[in-house]
Design a protein around this nucleic acid. Structure first.
Length: 149
DNA sequence: TAACGACCCCGTCATAGCGT
DNA sequence: ACGCTATGACGGGGTCGTTA
């Protein structure tokens, strides 16, 4: 007889979900949610762009951290002499946006994991409470039965 | 031991919602 | 209206355990 209670649990790190309910895809959060074996691995798996100076010209995060000197030749060099500045600006803007979103995604996942862990803890606590209450009820019933007899 | 599935983490894109 | 942030969705790469 579980009533649909709001899932506002007493978690310090409750996730503020603005975009609707958390619908956890089975691929990502199936299983025990143990912290990965690989630990922190910032290998930037999607690489290869960095060497393709002729393509979209995405800059790496490290390139952005170091100002203009680390810009790819095609971008920085051209912008110095030709009216390519808007292009370079757009690229830099895009890279900044990507970098921010990357970090936002990381933070979002961290919060979600914490939230799920919190919920799991809460479930464990409630299950224990439930067990205790059932046991208590049984005891009281016993006492009552003996009194009636 | 290669193949495979399950799981995890990541980066990116799309978009809802909020503040200015 | 516009920019920004948070988050769902998607696809890719890595690791690990299992199985033929």
């Amino acid at each position: 007889m579980l009533m649909s209670m709001p899932l506002i649990v007493n978690c310090t790190h409750s996730l503020a979900v603005r975009c609707g309910n958390i619908s956890v895809r089975e691929k990502t959060l199936k299983g025990t949610l143990s912290l990965g074996k690989a630990g922190s691995r910032f290998s930037m798996a999607v690489t290869g762009d960095e060497t393709e100076t002729g393509s979209t010209g995405d800059l790496t995060a490290s390139q952005l951290h170091k100002p203009s000197s680390s810009l790819p030749q095609g971008v920085a060099g051209a912008s110095a002499h030709t009216p390519m500045k808007p292009v370079a600006d757009a690229l830099q803007k895009r890279e900044l946006r990507l970098m921010k979103n990357r970090e936002a995604a990381r933070e979002c996942r961290r919060k979600k994991k914490e939230y799920v862990k919190c919920l799991e803890n809460r479930v464990a606590v409630l299950e224990n409470q439930n067990k205790t209450l059932i046991e208590e009820l049984r005891t009281l019933k016993d006492i009552y039965r003996h009194k009636v007899e």
